[in-house]
């Protein structure tokens, strides 16, 4: 299932906000076609690591590599800003709060990246956009503005928007945490389809059922480090650390 080529590599990543060190030395590799779930208590640093991968947060030290582009944090020169942009083009991001552009229809949201960033012509972009909206089951909502969509529908549009850039890896930052319980399923279903289609995915989530079913590997974050790592089977059935056990008992 998983290839050998590492799409994302993170080496000895540290991130501090002022005095507070949120990430204290994280290294990880994600291979082509792999689905990695990062889980743990809030404040454990999992979202911060995810946001460092596409430089929405600037790493304090360590480096990140996506599809062969290796970058460190620090001052952003013009050349570095361009490298970060290239890295982001290869990275799709789905946010907890969807962050759809409210002044654009669902279709316009999806084609915004290809048209503005990649310079794709409007006609092929629209075809691509409709294909992606169909894939997330929202072709009939193409002309609706986000405010008229439910949270689940908005998040599915957001997934289509990220996919439109044809990224090498998809990053999901708690994609279902802002949703009403009855809307979580439709978003997870889309994510499951993506995983089945061979997309490389890093998912920060509390949805342990989804993790058990879809993840190839799970990383338990505790206090800014990866405390435990393993397949879902290992994590759920042969938990090694007492902290992991305590967390799983609390959420399951």
């Amino acid at each position: 299932m998983t290839g050998n080529q590492a799409v994302v590599r993170v080496e000895n990543l540290h991130k501090s906000f002022g005095e507070l060190e949120v990430v204290r030395g994280v290294s990880m590799e994600v291979h082509q076609g792999e689905v990695v779930v990062m889980f743990g208590r809030s404040g454990a640093g999992k979202s911060t690591v995810l946001r460092c991968i596409n430089f929405l947060e600037d790493p304090t030290s360590g480096w990140v590599e996506v599809d062969g582009i290796r970058l460190t944090g620090g001052h952003r020169t013009r050349a570095k800003r361009e490298q970060i942009r290239q890295l982001r083009i290869r990275t799709g991001m789905v946010f907890q709060s969807f962050n759809l552009f409210p002044h654009m229809t669902a279709l316009e949201n999806v084609i915004e990246g290809p048209v503005t960033v990649k310079g794709m012509a409007p006609e092929p972009a629209k075809e691509l956009g409709m294909r992606l909206l169909e894939r997330v089951g929202l072709a009939d909502k193409a002309e609706e503005y986000p405010i008229r969509l439910s949270g689940g529908q908005q998040q599915r549009v957001a997934i289509a928007r990220a996919l439109a850039m044809e990224p090498k890896v998809m990053l999901f930052d708690e994609p279902t945490s802002a949703l009403d319980p009855e809307l979580i399923g439709e978003v997870l279903a889309v994510m499951r389809d993506l995983a089945m289609g061979g997309m490389t995915m890093i998912v920060v989530t509390h949805e342990m059922g989804f993790a058990r079913e879809v993840a190839h590997r799970m990383l338990f974050f505790n206090d800014g480090i990866i405390l435990e790592e393993g397949t879902p089977k290992e994590i759920f059935e042969n938990t090694r650390h007492v902290e992991t056990r305590k967390f799983l008992d609390a959420v399951l």
Binding site: I89, N99, G113
Partner: peptide, 12 residues
């Protein structure tokens, strides 16, 4: 979040 979403798409 709007700026972040635009940045994540690779916008200048």
């Amino acid at each position: 979040g709007q700026s972040e979403a635009a940045e994540a798409l690779g916008m200048t």
